[in-house]
Amino acid sequence: MIISRKHRYIFFPIPKTGTHSVRQALRESMGEDDLEQVGLFVQKRFPFPEFADITHGHISAREIRPVLGDEVFDDYLKFTFVRNPFDRFVSYCAFMSRGTPHFETSPTAYMKHIIREMRPVNHLLYLPQYSFVVDAEGRLTTDFIGRNETMQASYDQLCQRLGIASRTLDKVNSSKHRPWQEYYDRDLIGWVSELYQKDLEMFDYRFE
């Protein structure tokens, strides 16, 4: 997460949406009093005791709002980037199998194993995307939502709203795999649809 006092924004980086490149670009325009919480590639922490034991940078709207206060939270521009849940689940499974041949040799079977047997419902990277950016009533708190599928165009649009210079995003921490559609059969489509139903509805995604 980045909280920019200079440009008055809050960036909610949702796991497995490819936003390390956005973080990297945004750092170039951050002010001395801006804050960042991150635990990959760069180690930074918020000066808030509420997050002292959190080693990652994926803090939700419901967690940060009471710390910043309603006035700051409501006044700052809040944004995030989202990704097709079917694509994101492939990326998650590829990540979870690192160091083993499971995903590479039997990807669909491994994906089914995760969703039907492992069921890592509390794993940070497995959580639905909406859970990071809704309030206690389940309403979206963001003012701008970029898309992984059009990352550069979304970032250019975001920078225009923030009044900062845009630039070409670097590729950071991207996984290598075939087009995500190739990993699915009918059963897996149904299970992932059920798991991430709210993401599909809220961010207007589908299997296509």
Rank of each mutant, 00 (worst) to 15 (best):
Thr168Ala: 12
Tyr183Trp: 08
Ala165Phe: 08
Arg186Pro: 01
Tyr183Phe: 09
Val192Met: 05
Thr168Glu: 13
Asp185Thr: 07
Tyr183Leu: 01
Gln181Thr: 15
Ser174Ile: 06
Ala165Cys: 05
Ser166His: 07
Val192Ser: 09
Arg167Phe: 06
Val192Asn: 09
Tyr183Glu: 00
Arg167Trp: 01
Tyr183Thr: 01
Lys176Thr: 11
Asp185Asn: 07
His177Tyr: 15
Trp191Leu: 11
Arg178Glu: 13
Trp180His: 11
Trp180Asn: 10
Trp180Asp: 05
Ser174Asn: 06
Val192Tyr: 07
Tyr183Pro: 03
Ser166Phe: 05
Thr168Asn: 10
Lys171Val: 13
Tyr196His: 15
Gln181Cys: 11
Tyr196Met: 15
Pro179Asp: 11
Leu188Glu: 00
Asp170Leu: 13
Gly190Pro: 04
Asp187Pro: 00
Asp170Lys: 08
Pro179Val: 10
Ile189Ala: 02
Pro179Phe: 09
Asp187Arg: 02
Tyr196Gln: 15
His177Pro: 10
Trp191Glu: 10
Asp187Gly: 00
Lys171Ile: 08
Gly190Asn: 06
Trp191Asp: 10
Tyr196Lys: 15
Ile189Met: 05
Tyr196Asp: 14
Arg178Tyr: 12
Leu195Val: 15
Asp185Gln: 03
Leu169Met: 03
Asp185Ser: 04
Trp191Ala: 12
His177Ala: 08
Glu182Ala: 14
Lys171Ser: 07
Arg167Pro: 02
Asn173Ile: 04
Gln181Ile: 14
Ile189Asn: 01
Lys171Tyr: 12
Leu195Phe: 15
Arg186Lys: 03
Thr168Arg: 12
Leu195Arg: 14
Thr168Ser: 13
Asp185Trp: 05
Trp191Thr: 12
Ile189Tyr: 02
Glu182Asp: 12
Tyr184Met: 06
Pro179Tyr: 14
Leu195Asp: 13
Pro179Arg: 14
Lys171Phe: 12
Ser174Ala: 07
Pro179Ala: 10
Trp191His: 11
Gly190Tyr: 07
Lys176Glu: 11
Asp185Arg: 01
Tyr184Ser: 06
Glu182Thr: 11
Lys171Glu: 10
Val172Ala: 02
Tyr196Ile: 12
Ser175Met: 01
Ala165Thr: 03
Gln181Leu: 13
Arg186Thr: 04
Gly190Met: 09
Tyr196Phe: 15
Tyr183Met: 03
Leu169Gly: 04
Asp187His: 03
Leu169Ile: 05
Thr168Val: 07
Leu195His: 15
His177Asp: 13
Val172Lys: 01
Gly190Glu: 04
Asn173Ser: 08
Ser166Tyr: 04
Asn173Ala: 05
Glu182Pro: 09
Arg167Met: 04
Leu188Arg: 00
Arg167Val: 07
Ser174His: 07
Ser175Pro: 01
Asp185Pro: 05
Asp185Val: 02
His177Phe: 14
Asn173His: 06
Tyr183Val: 00
Ser193Arg: 12
Trp191Pro: 03
Ala165Tyr: 03
Val172Asp: 04
Leu195Cys: 15
Asp170Pro: 11
Leu169Ser: 07
Trp191Arg: 08
Trp180Glu: 11
Thr168Tyr: 05
Trp180Ala: 12
Leu195Ile: 12
Asp187Tyr: 04
Arg178Phe: 09
Leu195Ala: 15
